[in-house]
């Protein structure tokens, strides 16, 4: 399976990269990193020009399909996952996107990606479909029993609906309105999922630095809702959401005097703990919020 970590996982999301790989090896799931990958365009390039973003994402899929002969690309970052999905949709349905991508690809000297060559999945699909809850339960070393978790999915994993044709297909499939794959995996690992109404609320990640006051307010809503639901920790599955929550938790405290104590951990860090991987190998010490404080309860 082709693995597309993306830029954030080499920077602020380093811990997500480490913990994803650690969970993969604990579960016997193999990953081959996409060769010479480039940025997918994140949330910024589309505002300069959407088709540049489509090209950037298509190049990653082209390498996976044509040079690595992979059928599936796994992207743990919601932004990358979303952009590859969106490029896939646009290339399938929009002739002018196909034309632009073909023109740039030719000049850039690589094969043009054709819609349908690969399937893009998220790290949640990778573990849920590749291993499943029953197998996960059999491999548990440290149950997360007693840990109260609010599962936070953010925007890009479920919206807009049309780029995720495999979702909302009834029992077993992911829901765009009430996503549950992370809940399912962490429940299998023994955690107690709290009833969290802001699962797919926006953290203001697009304007983390350019409109910090709005982002701080949006993050504070999420942190307060998680605390009100009784959560010890918010499980995340996106490096932008994760760093947004952590940064603006500090900013809310320093600028607004609004202190919250809920911690943030990537869902792969929580699964890694459950599978007996050492917290250091999962990058728990790299997080801004001190996840060890809550993990002490179960270790």
């Amino acid at each position: 399976m082709a693995y597309y970590p993306g830029c954030a996982l080499e920077g602020t999301g380093h811990a997500y990269n480490e913990s994803t790989k650690a969970v993969g090896s604990a579960l016997g799931l193999k990953l081959d990193e996409v060769k010479d990958w480039n940025c997918c365009g994140a949330m910024e390039v589309k505002n300069i020009d959407p088709k540049v973003q489509t090209y950037l994402s298509s190049r990653v899929m082209s390498i996976a399909a044509n040079e690595m002969h992979a059928k599936v690309v796994m992207a743990p970052c919601n932004g990358c996952y979303h952009n590859l999905k969106k490029a896939e949709y646009d290339l399938e349905h929009d002739a002018s996107s196909r034309e632009t991508v073909a023109r740039i690809s030719e000049k850039a000297g690589h094969e043009t990606y054709q819609a349908g060559q690969v399937e893009t999945i998220h790290a949640l699909d990778w573990i849920k479909d590749g291993v499943g809850e029953e197998e996960l339960k059999r491999r548990l070393k440290n149950s997360l029993k007693g840990l109260k978790v609010a599962n936070y999915y953010g925007c890009m994993y479920t919206r807009p609906r049309h780029i995720f044709p495999e979702k909302d297909k009834g029992p077993g499939s992911e829901s765009t309105l009430q996503p549950h794959f992370m809940d399912d995996l962490l429940a299998a690992a023994g955690a107690q999922n709290v009833d969290f109404p802001l699962k797919t609320a926006c953290c203001g990640g697009a304007h983390t630095l350019s409109d910090s006051d709005t982002s701080t307010q949006l993050v504070l809503n999420i942190l307060r809702a998680a605390e009100a639901a009784g959560a010890d920790v918010i499980a995340t599955e996106c490096p932008t959401c994760h760093s947004g929550l952590e940064m603006h938790q500090v900013r809310a405290e320093k600028v607004l005097g609004e202190k919250t104590t809920v911690k943030m951990l990537y869902f792969t860090q929580l699964l890694g703990i459950a599978l007996g991987v050492a917290p250091r190998k999962l990058g728990v010490h790299e997080n801004v919020s001190d996840g060890m404080e809550v993990l002490k309860k179960i270790l």
Binding site: E10, N38, E44, V45, L209, D211
Partner: peptide, 22 residues
């Protein structure tokens, strides 16, 4: 806007090097 400036800094870096360093 600050948002546009962020988008421009970001896109310039991606186009120049293929990747960004945050």
């Amino acid at each position: 806007s600050k948002s546009t400036i962020f988008d421009e800094v970001f896109a310039e870096q991606v186009i120049a090097t293929g990747k960004i360093e945050e």
